[in-house]
Design a binder for these strands. Structure first.
Length: 498
RNA sequence: GGGGGCGUAGCUCAGUCGGUAGAGCACCGGAUUUUUAAUCCGAUGGUCCCAGGUUCGAGUCCUGGCGCCCUCACCA
């Protein structure tokens, strides 16, 4: 890991000062993107341009020097000639690989036809005190890549591309929902009552109000309050926090899209999801629809396959009745699943996850879940055991979750109470009575949706790990000055009050 | 939290049976007006993750710790 300034670079600062060249000038001429210089290059020889970026790969030939200049959108060869740069030439070695420079020059080609900017003026924009990573292999060390993402980004072009892609995904998600008349809103991240999902929350404390607060595990209950308030179509691109394990698919903070639409049901939301994926194919993927992920190819162009939860369950577990205790317990034992103290629906759903989820290549909508595993979804009018809920699976990963939103306040209160009976560290510790009150004012029938943006970005960029689509994934701190984990006066991690 | 793997120069990596710490790139000096992983000559560069232990001798073996990766569990 690079944790020392390259000793040979410090003396350069003095030499630059002696030469009257500022190492960190407050302003430099504004460059144009390198990509724009390369457009129609053949007809533009002799044109003067100003480009800027990081200098790489210097190649010296006595009175001639070549290098490349890298900016976000591209790179181009820079040619330095002694005769064109009489003032700069004696100081040329003070400007090195990794420095940020601005080049004023003329478009042209070399003898071998390489597009080149022949420099007329070289302006040091920022002196770099550290060496660049190895020019051929780049930065490979996984830990260093995550801890020093800023190096990873300029050293590894595919990393830049992935994060540009992620940005486009988020932009196009916004464009899609904006186009449907949705309002983008912001709801609290600090929740007095943790809810909207089953997950362990991060606990914190507000001093002035002397109040325990939770970082949100989902924005759901606030967004639905907005439906009560008459905001008929809302969405939020929301960072959520779950105090749980870290893996290639999990980061303690991650980004979810949640959307809610009045006068819609879960079937309408399926259309929305398909519409969204079609939009992403058209825009982000440039009309393509096939992505390759973890060694397999997936076609993201709708329509998507549909399968009923209980049909998939029956197929994978012949003779097992999801709703029958003896049958479920026997099957769970057979699969070696934990059953002690767990409510029956939880066990049955574990069987589903164990036997079905990994096999779902998709994209596929799994729909009509047993109501017992959907505390916020509306019951089916045809079958009271079933909730109007679906999840979207691709490559065995849950990508989205949606339902016809439960808006019966008394039913909601019963479901919350039911959850509290089987309380564990992941279920909400108390009932969100304010949410139930909100429903008592009347929430229009609505369909809601949650989509994991990080996993979507993994799929669209072909990234195996969630850390490859999160700029700064959570890592343990390594500095010696770290405070002990146990002591943190301002943030007691006590159990939630009853 | 369990299991497996890894940690050596700024970067990418070798290091055999326990016997003087290595290469390429980068960097520094020199040559070079057409390279683009430039080339050639020369030089510099080490807390072998940390702390103990075994040993005449440890990068190598043992114990403990730290960090990261994979995997299982939990979860989205």
């Amino acid at each position: 890991m690079t944790d020392q300034i390259a000793a040979d670079r410090l003396p350069k600062l003095d030499k630059l000062a002696e030469a009257g060249i500022p190492s960190y000038p407050p302003r430099v001429p504004k460059p144009v993107p390198i990509a724009s210089c390369l457009e129609g290059f053949d007809d533009r020889h002799g044109e003067k341009v100003v480009v800027g970026g990081r200098l790489t790969q210097i190649r010296d030939f006595g009175k001639l020097r070549f290098s490349h200049l890298l900016d976000l959108g591209g790179s181009i060869q820079i040619g330095f000639q002694r005769d064109r740069l009489p003032e700069f030439w004696p100081n040329r070695k003070l400007v090195e690989a990794n420095d940020q420079v601005v080049i004023r020059g003329e478009l042209g080609v070399t003898q071998k036809g390489e597009p080149t900017i022949w420099a007329d003026e070289v302006i040091l924009a920022t002196k770099a005190l550290r060496h660049p990573p190895e020019k051929w292999a780049g930065l490979q060390d996984v830990e260093a890549r995550y801890r020093m993402r800023y190096v990873d980004l300029f050293a590894n072009p595919e990393v830049r591309e992935t994060f540009v892609l992620r940005s486009r995904i988020v932009r196009e998600i916004r464009a899609y929902f904006d186009g449907l008349g949705y309002l983008e809103v912001e709801t609290p991240m600090l929740h007095p009552v943790s809810g909207g999902a089953t997950a362990r929350p991060f606990v914190t404390h507000h001093n002035a109000l002397d109040m325990q607060l939770y970082l949100r595990i989902a924005p759901e209950l606030y967004l639905k309050r907005l439906l009560v308030g008459g905001m008929e179509r809302v969405y939020e691109v929301s960072r959520v926090f779950r105090n749980e394990g870290i893996s290639t698919r999990h980061n303690p903070e991650f980004t979810m899209l949640e959307s809610y639409e009045a006068w819609a049901d879960y079937a309408d939301i399926m259309d929305r999801v398909e519409g969204l994926f079609a939009h992403l194919c058209d825009t982000v993927l440039g009309g393509q629809s096939k992505v390759s992920f973890r060694g397999a190819e997936y076609d993201l162009r709708p329509p998507f396959e549909r399968a009923r939860y209980l049909d998939l369950f029956a197929e994978a577990n012949p003779g097992v009745d999801w709703f029958d205790e003896a049958s479920v317990l026997a099957r769970a034992k057979e699969l070696g699943l934990k059953t002690d103290g767990l409510p029956l629906p939880k066990i049955a759903n574990d069987i589903f996850e164990e036997t079905v989820e990994d096999t779902l290549r998709g994209p596929v909508f799994v729909h009509d879940y047993p109501v017992a595993v959907c505390p916020l979804a509306k019951q089916s009018p045809e079958d009271p055991r079933i909730a109007e809920r679906f999840e979207l699976f691709v490559a065995g990963m849950e990508m989205g979750n949606a339902f016809s939103e439960l808006n019966d306040p008394q039913d909601q209160e019963r479901r919350f109470a039911e959850q509290l009976v089987h309380m564990d560290e992941e279920t909400p510790s108390e009932m969100d009575v304010d949410y139930v009150s909100a429903l008592e004012f009347g929430m229009p029938p609505a369909g809601g949706l949650g989509i994991g943006i990080d996993r979507l970005a993994m799929l669209l960029s072909g990234s195996d790990s969630i850390r490859d689509v999160i700029l700064f994934p959570l890592l343990r701190r390594v500095d010696a000055s770290a405070p002990p984990a146990e002591e943190s006066a301002d943030a007691p991690q006590a159990e939630p009050a009853p």
